[in-house]
Amino acid sequence: MTDGPPPGGGVPGEPSGVPPAAPAADAPAPAVGRVGRWRDQALALGWLVAAWMLLWGDVSWGNLAAGLLVGTAVLLFFPLPPVTFGGRFRPRALLVFLATFVAELVSASLHVAAVALHFGYRPRGAIIAVPLRVRTDLNLALTAEVISLVPGTLILDIDRARGVLYVHVLDVRGPGDLTASRERVLAVERRIVRAIGSPDEVRRLDLEPTERRNP
């Protein structure tokens, strides 16, 4: 059962706390050369293959081949606007992100299983609006994908212009759960940006909302 939108966030409209359209600092990156385009396509293919294997829940050569085939078909027949990678890889932060993601995956799976096995209990859901601090297309896509892979949370909509994710969360028992869910989404964004974001994007994580809108 899904409740109505909670105060300060919810279904599309004008939820409080949602910043206006993204500033020029978060505008799409300028065009890149052929090498840059191939690099971006390779990164996109890698993420598609990883998502495919995670969704199947089986790491095997067959799933790897199928993921490569499906990912290549998606990039060829359903081309999306180019999302240029302008950040830098930080191995230590990337390991922290991966380890935390696996831990949250296990914890959320156990929680959802416990809810499913709790006979007679009817979990309540809610839809929350979470404004991200780094509103690039790449960060929106990666954060939304990671959130959707964790059981109990699902991305329903993305406001690209405002950099807002609309997330359905399961088993909401009070306002504290809504706050904790927003903090979890922002924590995922923080770990992604610290792992592969540019220095400017990392700096923006700690700015107040007014400073982010008026750099």
Rank of each mutant, 00 (worst) to 15 (best):
P91V: 10
R122F: 02
T143S: 08
L69Y: 11
Y121R: 14
W52A: 05
E201V: 03
G163Q: 05
A195K: 05
F85R: 10
T153N: 02
P91W: 13
V35N: 06
R37N: 06
L205P: 03
I155A: 01
V35C: 07
A27W: 14
V172H: 01
P123W: 00
A25F: 12
A129M: 13
V115A: 00
D171M: 05
L205F: 04
H168A: 09
A65P: 01
P28R: 12
L149Q: 11
V202Y: 05
L207G: 04
S107G: 04
A25K: 08
V169N: 01
T143Q: 05
G67N: 02
I155Q: 00
G9C: 09
V96Q: 11
P81A: 13
E211C: 11
R92Q: 12
G86D: 10
P23T: 10
D3H: 10
G125Y: 01
L80V: 10
W38M: 09
F77K: 14
L75N: 02
L80T: 14
E189L: 05
A99W: 07
R162C: 06
P151G: 11
A65C: 05
R124A: 15
L64Y: 09
L154C: 09
G86M: 05
R184D: 12
S181D: 09
R182P: 03
G17T: 05
E211A: 15
G13N: 06
A99Q: 08
L205E: 02
V32F: 00
